[in-house]
Amino acid sequence: MIGSRRAAADGARPDGVANAPLLRVTDLRLEVPGATGPVAAVDGVSLEIAAGRVLALVGESGSGKSLTALAIARLLPDGVVRRSGQLWFEGVGALERLPERAMRAVRGAEIGFVFQEPMSALNPVMRVGEQVREAIEAHRGRPRGRAARQRAIELLAQVGIPEPELRYRAYPHELSGGMKQRVCIAIALAAGPRLLLADEPTTALDVTVQAQVLELLAALRRRSSLAMLLITHDLGVVAELADGVAVMYAGRVVEQAPVEVLFRAPLHPYTVGLFRSLPRLDGPRGRLVPIPGSVPPPGERPAGCPFRNRCAAAVARCAEQEPRLESVAQRHAVACWRPGAVTP
């Protein structure tokens, strides 16, 4: 087996050994420029996703969840540096060592992307069908010309776009937000990837449209065993779609568990805080219990546990030593000196 620090898994392997992961991220560290030199924005993140499973990466702005996804795709913005970490993709190998040319083939063919803002992900002056066709033709051995056009229309139909022949000729501005996001999903699927990186894919959508897009993602995953890294701040979306959850705070994974375990028995005070500050349709109405303060930016994170300044259960040890992510039960890991000290 590889690496001793591997985190509790994503729920794919009940015995903790069986099927090998599709993607394994080990000890990822990303740095951004700070006032006095580089500071860690992502600090020692390890993740695994098995084929056909959905791992949700949950956290608030600044937690490092989007940077983690961009690092997997090797699309880090200028100035952000991968200081360390392995990105192992089944059948391809170490992504971090691939030349850019080879990586370009992996993007699309193995790893597809869907982002929050469908409008900015699409080319505004190109017909949406042509954009899907372009994504199909971009990869070697794929259909071209009329066959590619036919395949694009099939893809538009698959993602639930009505009258796909007609919509093929539409420009992005002629489509609603939900339809644009479906086009983005069609583009992401064009070359048949095994992993979809979905960064807040429904955040910009209305709730009825969000439900439709979540249905689509669930159907894709079920029928084509597409694995997903689902990045979201919305615990409702997590509950609906994820198998496993990794909760990120200040650049670290602070808790990881199968979704039903995390929702039933969260152990990290931050995870508990997220649940308690969430207004619910079914729970009691009264006052919400917010987490005091806000996420510290990289470079201003406290020594020891990065959450201790906001934590109701913090003790002296939390300031002295940083807790590592450790298993507390099968497939449930938490980085906390006092797991369970704050109850939901």
């Binding site: 709730v207 969000q210 979540l214 249905e215 509950a239 609906e240 039903e260 349709l281």
Partner: peptide
């Protein structure tokens, strides 16, 4: 359309 907030009572898929 609201997500259930409870993985035991999923409505999607």
């Amino acid at each position: 359309a609201i997500p259930s907030a409870d993985p035991a009572r999923r409505t999607i898929g």
